[in-house]
Computed example of a mutant assay.
Amino acid sequence: MTDALDALHGFYAAEAEYLSAGGPGKADFGGMAAHLAPDVVMYQAEVLPYGGTWRGHDGMERFMAAMSDAWSSLAFLEQRFAVDGETVATYNRCVFQSRPTGRTLETSIMQWITVRDGLVTEFRPFYLDTSAVLAALTP
């Protein structure tokens, strides 16, 4: 495996541990933060309830809280990775369950992730269908 992919897998493991411990407001974000650069940036589609640009560890912790407000669960059905130096492209087929409506959504998300010096510096997710995401979340 490459260094970037190893770093990303470390982040995913810390994220899973954070969420299984209760997530925002209940678990310590420090384990996740240890895998993120201090100036990490998460870009989300503006139309989503958790859309916008989230910066730094504080921004990522607030992003996780916003995602938790929107989704009660997320299960990965399939993940694929392509690595080019410090960049990892991921294909994620997943099932979300909407917290506001209880509806489930099976969809795909591509992500462009940058890793530098063993830390994730940037996430750029691209949803297959943001309209379907909004429909699942809207009562």
Rank of each mutant, 00 (worst) to 15 (best):
E15K: 09
I113A: 03
Y91L: 15
A7D: 02
T107E: 05
D6F: 02
F11V: 00
V133W: 01
L105M: 12
T107H: 09
G56S: 05
R62T: 06
E106I: 01
G59P: 07
L36W: 06
Y91N: 05
G30M: 03
V41C: 10
G118W: 15
G56N: 04
A135R: 10
Y91G: 07
L105H: 09
V95R: 15
W71H: 12
M42W: 12
S131P: 00
S20D: 15
T107W: 07
G118Q: 12
D6G: 00
L36E: 02
Y18W: 11
S72M: 13
T90N: 04
V95C: 11
M67V: 13
E15S: 11
P125D: 06
R80K: 13
L77T: 05
M42E: 04
W54N: 00
A136Y: 03
S108F: 05
G25A: 02
G56K: 04
R103Q: 15
S108M: 14
F76W: 13
T121F: 05
T90M: 12
W71A: 12
M110W: 13
E17Q: 15
F63Y: 15
P100E: 10
K26T: 13
G23L: 08
D129S: 14
Q111C: 14
P100M: 08
V47F: 00
Y12S: 11
S108W: 05
P139I: 00
M67S: 12
A13E: 13
T121D: 01
A37T: 04
T90R: 10
S68T: 15
L74N: 10
A89L: 13
L128Q: 09
F123P: 02
S68G: 15
F63I: 01
R99H: 03
D28C: 06
H35G: 01
T121W: 01
M32Q: 06
Y50M: 07
A21F: 09
M1T: 12
G22Q: 04
W71K: 07
R103A: 15
A70L: 08
A4V: 00
V115L: 09
P100W: 09
T2W: 07
A65H: 10
D28M: 03
A13H: 08
A37H: 12
G102K: 07
S72I: 12
R103S: 14
G56P: 04
S73F: 08
L8H: 11
G56Q: 03
S72G: 10
F76Y: 15
G51K: 03
H35Y: 06
A4Q: 00
V133H: 05
G85W: 11
A136K: 02
Q44H: 07
G52T: 02
G56V: 03
E78Y: 09
I113D: 11
T138F: 00
G31F: 12
A70W: 12
S73V: 09
S131Y: 04
D3E: 14
L134I: 14
G31K: 08
M42V: 06
D58T: 08
V88E: 06
E122N: 10
A33P: 07
M1F: 09
V47A: 13
H9Y: 08
H57P: 10
L137Y: 11
E86Y: 04
A37Y: 02
L119R: 14
L74F: 14
F29C: 04
L77C: 02
V83Q: 11
L134K: 10
G10W: 11
T121K: 02
F81H: 15
T90V: 13
T107I: 14
A4G: 03
